[in-house]
Amino acid sequence: MPIDAPGYLDVHAHFVTDSYVRQARAAGHELPDGVPAWPSWSAEAHLELMDRCSIETSMLSISSPGIHFGDDTAARRLAREVNEDGADTVRAHPGRFGLFASLPLPDVDGALAEIAHAYDHLDADGVVLETNTHGTYLGNPDLEPVWAELDRRAAVVFLHPTSPVCWEQSALGRPRPMVEFIFDTARTVTDLLMSGTLDRYRNLTVIVPHCGGALPVLADRIDGFMKMFMPAGTEVPGAVEQLGRLYYDLAGPALPRQLPALLSLVGADRLLYGSDHCWTPAAGVEAHVAGLDAAAAPDGTGSWRALTTANAHRVLPRTAR
């Protein structure tokens, strides 16, 4: 790596707290999404990993299973708690961390209140939205006030997959992040396309995780069905065009196959780095960074490190200062 190479800006990084894990376990998430155990996390250990991998800044968010476990009041309280904890970490380590705030969806009033608190009091960099909450997907018309407020604030919206409501049958007893997360990402983005949400709210910057999940190979199929099944008189751009406006992180096994598939759908200016730490262990992050640093980047972009960091500074301009 050249000595003057920029540090990565990680848009897909997670934190957990003892209180959050305790409350999730009490709600039945002993083995979250079927993985063997909850990860441990501390800002100090995260920073040590970032320094080893030359990651300058990590945007922290709560991963699946999110913060709404069935009770609106408890979800509002937990959203406020984790957002305050994340903001404390950001303040304690200037320039090294940012925050994508959690919202207690599908509680619309609670989400609107937390958007205001996150932006006006915590100086959040954006919000994280799970792909569904108890079966409410992101194109649901009940969520329209939330999208309108996020659009008014020109928000960065980081999507994160979670288990679909049918996982007991569809996952076949296997960890849901393996396959279910990938398809739930495609499901909620398709819902946003078919509902017209992405076209109505063009002030948003939407980040799709894991190289777009299944979207690169499904985009043409979705595009064709949109043309056939959108309501009569509806005029919205096709799926392929709208997907080209979104941003995509490279978390997970991007190489050798998924990243080339994504580049057949979107330009290199839409790609961002993501580690998925702390759910991806340190050794996995180190291997992922080494693979990207060794791989050839698209012509004229220098390196994956330089390309994704420059893109991230456009999406999150405060990080460039």
Rank of each mutant, 00 (worst) to 15 (best):
M1A: 14
M1G: 15
P2S: 13
I3E: 12
Y8L: 14
L9G: 03
D10Q: 11
V11M: 04
V11C: 08
H14M: 06
H14D: 10
D18M: 00
Y20H: 14
R25H: 01
G28I: 10
L31H: 15
P32Y: 12
D33C: 13
G34V: 03
P39W: 07
S40P: 01
A43L: 00
A43R: 07
M50L: 09
R52N: 00
T57K: 13
G66D: 10
F69G: 07
G70T: 11
D71Q: 12
D71S: 11
D72R: 13
T73S: 13
A79C: 14
R80V: 01
G86Y: 01
T89V: 15
A92G: 12
H93E: 00
F97Y: 15
G98C: 07
L99V: 11
S102N: 08
V108R: 09
L112M: 12
L112S: 07
A113D: 15
E114W: 02
E114G: 09
A116M: 02
V128F: 06
V128I: 15
V128L: 12
E130R: 12
N132I: 12
G135M: 10
L138F: 03
L138N: 06
G139M: 02
N140F: 03
P141H: 06
P141F: 07
D142K: 10
W147K: 05
W147A: 01
E149S: 01
E149Y: 02
D151F: 03
R152D: 14
R153I: 14
A155F: 02
V156E: 00
L159S: 04
H160L: 12
P161H: 08
S163N: 12
V165M: 13
W167S: 12
Q169G: 04
G173Y: 05
F181N: 02
F183C: 02
F183N: 04
A186N: 04
A186Y: 02
D191C: 09
L193P: 03
G196Y: 09
G196K: 04
T197M: 14
D199H: 15
R200Y: 08
Y201E: 00
T205Q: 12
P209H: 07
P209Y: 02
C211W: 00
G212F: 01
A214I: 03
V217K: 00
R221K: 14
I222G: 10
A232M: 10
G233F: 07
T234F: 04
E235W: 00
E235F: 00
G238I: 11
G238C: 10
V240M: 11
V240L: 13
E241C: 02
E241K: 08
Q242S: 09
Q242F: 00
Q242R: 15
G244K: 05
Y247R: 08
P253K: 06
P256C: 09
R257L: 11
Q258S: 10
Q258W: 08
V266P: 10
G267F: 01
H277P: 04
P281Q: 06
G284V: 12
H288N: 07
G300S: 08
T301R: 13
S303K: 10
R305F: 11
L307D: 04
T308G: 06
N311Y: 09
H313Y: 01
V315D: 01
V315W: 00
T319D: 00
T319I: 14
R321N: 08
